[in-house]
Amino acid sequence: MRRPDLLAFLLLVGCAPEMGNPASLVTQERIIGVRGDPAEAAPGDLVRYSSLVVSPSGTVEAQDLSWSLCNLRKPVAENTPVSQTCLTGDLVQSAQGGSVSIQTPSSACSNFGPLAPPSRSGTLRPSDPDATGGYYQPLRLDLGTEQAIFRERLSCGLAGASLVMSQEFRARYTANQNPTLVSLSVLVGETPVSLDSLPANQRIRLVAIWSPDSAESYPVFDPASQTIVDHREALWLSWFATAGAFEDSLTGRQENDPAASTENTWQSPATAEVVFLWLVLHDSRGGADFASYTLTVVP
């Protein structure tokens, strides 16, 4: 018996697909951000919603923006954040305009929360929370053919917890606050540059900074171990621009990363032009903030 020689070779070229336009490139009118104030609401609360609608010619005052509460539960079988029927069905318009106020439905916690919907045929399954323990009331936004969903975080309590655990959770839990974007730094290499004179066809570093208190701590109930575990919010930023190319459409910080900033690289366009830039900051409990910038690219 002897060990064989290995004669092997492999010819392999990339099989990865080529994708279309990145989500960060704004080529038409789009809804890219929504913020609710407060960021977390109890059933019956009035919430002020602000939208960020953009187009290749800049931020749009979307007076025709239609807001509709969707009170349809998502089947467990659907692998989407809201029921597909919320997108394809006819909903009653709740408000219209770029910024609106809408009252959170009183049934929100039984429709989308830990309270099982009333039923005559036995106990129904309550909605599942997300990884932060959150439940959400969906709203559909319509602007022409453009659609978006915003999910308002609900203050509903816990599912599957004992009374003692529920009381402890209530004592420790603080409703979510929206994060706050503080500033944007623009650098070429290590040199800061002005937004009014960015070099064309350059790799430009963009550093967005948020306030230190944007990443809040919050407790999450673990029904398997019947314990409460403390977490810290993760934050991430969606980058949008009317020209150029970002290295990543999303950048951010995991919950165990205490840094209060995130960095992206933007390849500026080859020709001189005015570019609109938008940043939308998200926290993992559904809070948001956004900011707009005008960049001038020079030869």
């Binding site: 989500a23 789009r30 809804i31 890219i32 951000g33 929504v34 989407t80 954040p81 809201v82 597909q84 997108l87 394809t88 959400y136 936004l141 659609q147 978006a148 969903i149 915003f150 999910r151 991430w236 969606s238 999303l250 939308v280 998200h282 559904g286 948001a288």
Partner: peptide
């Protein structure tokens, strides 16, 4: 549609 809560698009089937 854009799920503005997380900043990612979702498909409609």
């Amino acid at each position: 549609y854009l799920d503005t809560t997380i900043g990612q698009y979702q498909p409609i089937f």
